[in-house]
Simulated assay, not measured.
Amino acid sequence: MEAVTRARKRFRQYPVIFAKCSKEASVYASCVLKQDNLKKNDCLAEFHGFKNCLRKTAVDLKTKI
């Protein structure tokens, strides 16, 4: 049951992680919404910015995604 406890603790951190990356999430969402016919890799740079922010924030909070 220790694994379940650790997973729950990790999941409680998700709102904090997403809140700290709200700027990057907004940039990525704007790019996606701007596209009329979204294709693979259209917003790749914005996605990588958002993903890197999530990873960095998780490391700073000493958790994982």
Score class of each variant (00 low, 15 high):
1 M>Y: 07
1 M>I: 01
1 M>W: 03
2 E>S: 06
2 E>F: 03
2 E>I: 01
2 E>A: 04
3 A>C: 02
3 A>H: 09
3 A>S: 08
3 A>K: 11
3 A>T: 01
4 V>R: 12
4 V>L: 14
4 V>D: 10
4 V>K: 13
5 T>D: 11
5 T>A: 13
5 T>F: 09
6 R>E: 15
6 R>C: 01
7 A>K: 12
7 A>M: 10
8 R>F: 03
8 R>Q: 10
9 K>N: 10
9 K>Q: 15
10 R>F: 01
10 R>G: 02
10 R>E: 13
11 F>I: 04
12 R>H: 10
12 R>F: 05
12 R>V: 02
12 R>Q: 13
12 R>A: 12
13 Q>F: 06
13 Q>A: 14
14 Y>L: 15
15 P>G: 02
15 P>H: 01
16 V>K: 15
18 F>A: 09
18 F>H: 13
19 A>F: 10
19 A>V: 00
20 K>S: 10
20 K>H: 09
20 K>A: 15
21 C>V: 05
22 S>G: 04
22 S>Y: 07
22 S>F: 07
23 K>H: 10
23 K>C: 02
23 K>P: 00
24 E>L: 02
24 E>H: 03
24 E>P: 02
24 E>F: 02
24 E>D: 06
25 A>T: 00
25 A>C: 03
25 A>I: 00
26 S>M: 08
26 S>L: 09
27 V>C: 03
27 V>S: 08
28 Y>F: 15
28 Y>L: 11
28 Y>M: 06
29 A>T: 04
29 A>H: 06
29 A>I: 01
30 S>A: 11
32 V>Q: 03
32 V>W: 01
32 V>H: 01
33 L>N: 14
33 L>C: 12
33 L>W: 06
33 L>G: 12
34 K>I: 00
34 K>P: 00
35 Q>C: 04
36 D>I: 03
36 D>W: 00
37 N>M: 07
37 N>D: 14
37 N>K: 14
37 N>L: 08
37 N>S: 12
38 L>M: 03
38 L>Y: 07
38 L>C: 02
39 K>H: 11
39 K>L: 06
41 N>D: 15
41 N>W: 08
41 N>M: 10
42 D>A: 13
42 D>Q: 02
42 D>V: 01
43 C>H: 05
44 L>D: 13
44 L>K: 15
45 A>D: 11
45 A>Y: 08
45 A>I: 14
45 A>N: 09
45 A>Q: 11
45 A>F: 07
47 F>S: 06
47 F>N: 09
47 F>K: 14
47 F>L: 08
48 H>L: 14
48 H>R: 13
48 H>Q: 14
48 H>I: 08
50 F>R: 08
50 F>Q: 07
51 K>M: 06
51 K>Y: 12
52 N>Q: 13
52 N>D: 15
53 C>E: 09
53 C>A: 09
53 C>Y: 12
53 C>H: 12
53 C>W: 12
54 L>Y: 05
54 L>T: 03
55 R>G: 03
56 K>I: 01
57 T>D: 02
58 A>E: 14
58 A>I: 04
59 V>L: 14
59 V>H: 13
62 K>M: 07
64 K>V: 11
64 K>I: 06
64 K>A: 12
65 I>H: 09
65 I>P: 10
65 I>A: 08
